[in-house]
Amino acid sequence: MGNVYFWIIYAVIIGSAIIALEATSLLWAAISFVVLLSEIALVYFGLNMPVLGGVQLAIYAGGVTILVLFAIMMIGESYKKPGGKAVKAIVLSLLLLILGTSFSFLSAIDTFPFKTFSTETLGTVFVEKYSFFTIVLGFIVSALLYMANAIITKKREAK
């Protein structure tokens, strides 16, 4: 079992995933989706795979999200409650979860430890080597969040 940091990341991932599906505003759902993908990138960094994490950030959190935003722009976001045949879906997904997890425990997957990779080291590396990119990325993300919020509030007011 993982330590507390792992479970925090777990909670963030699953939470953002659920928000991405359940949020009333499509735009907030997209932002939540970006958070989900970035957290997964973080997991990759944690698994000592910085290149994969970078690609995940660039392609998913960058490219795909922009596409999604463009699509939302073209369609026009909706605030309808996204309903559906929830019962069947919940049953099936829970079945999958239980089945998968129980088999991961029951099967003969050995649990020898990973090479530990500290996120502190990662942070040091980011600051030392990629600080410029990190700063630019940080600005971009914050700008994105701000603009999204601004747009949504404006739309709300217009309505």
């Binding site: 559906g84 879906a89 099936l92 999958l96 089945l99 088999f103």
Partner: peptide, 20 residues
């Protein structure tokens, strides 16, 4: 399409159970 997806997921489940 949602119904088809449901059948698909159910089928995957059944197949997994059969294989296991």
């Amino acid at each position: 399409v949602v119904d088809y997806l449901t059948y698909f997921v159910a089928g995957v489940l059944v197949l997994t159970l059969i294989i296991l």
